[in-house]
Write a protein that binds this DNA or RNA. Sequence first.
DNA 1: ACGCATAAGTACGATATCGTACCTTTGAGA
DNA 2: TCTCAAAGGTACGATATCGTACTTATGCGT
Lengths: 220, 220
Amino acid sequence: MLPPEEFSRLQPELERCSFEQGLVLEAPDTPIAKVCFPEPGLISVMARTPVGVQAEVGIIGPEGMTGLPLLHGLTNWPHATVVQIPCRALCIEATAFRAALAECRPLHDRLLRYAQVFAVQLAQGSLCNGRFTIEQRLARWLLMCHDRTDREDLPLTHELLSSMLGVRRAGITTALRTLNDSGAVRSRRGGIGIRDRAQMRAIAGDAYGVPEAEYARVLA
Amino acid sequence: MLPPEEFSRLQPELERCSFEQGLVLEAPDTPIAKVCFPEPGLISVMARTPVGVQAEVGIIGPEGMTGLPLLHGLTNWPHATVVQIPCRALCIEATAFRAALAECRPLHDRLLRYAQVFAVQLAQGSLCNGRFTIEQRLARWLLMCHDRTDREDLPLTHELLSSMLGVRRAGITTALRTLNDSGAVRSRRGGIGIRDRAQMRAIAGDAYGVPEAEYARVLA
DNA sequence: ACGCATAAGTACGATATCGTACCTTTGAGA
DNA sequence: TCTCAAAGGTACGATATCGTACTTATGCGT
């Protein structure tokens, strides 16, 4: 989705990679090796405390990139970046990425606009964690996930979702049953299919939409 | 705290302003007029949904700046920026700020590092909202506030704190009484004084510290 | 076809927090 | 000195979520 002249600056250095579920692209406080521009799939940014309390705080898909610290002139940050739904991605070495940023100001500027969209996503996620129910947050998460994949069925266990939202596994089971009963999703062992997006949006309410609108405004 | 050559680029255009509590520096989705570098005091970034659910998601003091969207090449974002504890600040018009960024790359780079610290603060706030008790979050907030002011007593009502944390006013009263009883703070009508920082940190636990460490690493 | 590890469903008492309401205290201004 | 709006304390039933544990279902590998 980059304009041709910006994409062509990166193209020679881009390598297509394939990522399994669970792959850790960036470890906390560890130099980041490469920047990835995902194809359909899902990568998430996890915050944690020194003693190991952890939860997902942001998600990245084809609309964005991993390695945001490199965009800010740094090599690492305290968060982990983990592949949640397998995907391919176009990847570039950190040093090559840095060089491209320095040489191509329009590229840097464009990616910085994405950094703002991501910051808005973090902020809105914070609001949701404080003010919405598990059911609403789950609907929000599934919608965001659905936006970023091209799959019919998302390969997600309740266990995985519970660690994403930072709640009990049993809490996911309960919330998911409500979504299922309302016809919004179809849930199977190890997988969830979005059935009715309109219904999902109704359930998510205001928990969903602000970062998406920001993305449309800033990068579309 | 900027190096001399970067500060001198901004200096001619900086104007010192005085901000009252409650002043709205940036309204949601509205072009930002100026960038402010606060002196001791507190400014907060509030996220909200279309229907008005709102909570604070980030705070800014002398360590940082308002107007982050301008740093990302944009003019606005969906959040509001509000003065919570009166302060002075050095301010610069948006257009002059943009010009300075374009001309002085080291300045831009340095401020981008701050943008990362702020993003980490947003992420950690999200984690806290999901996983910590009101008491811990309150302790975290008061510590962060204390870091950014030079006052003995923070002029904060329970009402204000409740809208910051996105909880009931009565919830603040209760949590604050616990902090008071443990000797961590001294609470008076319309004001709170931090009495024992070590105690506060013990109560906040892991809710406090990650963004602060990131700041020290990246900008100190 | 079978066995087993993984995933999902369910239960239940405990706890944090909510919504709401009402009452008391405080301190600034008349 | 008095008054009153703002601030703070408290109460109580309701609800969301938790921690934990046990049970059932599924599908992969043999």
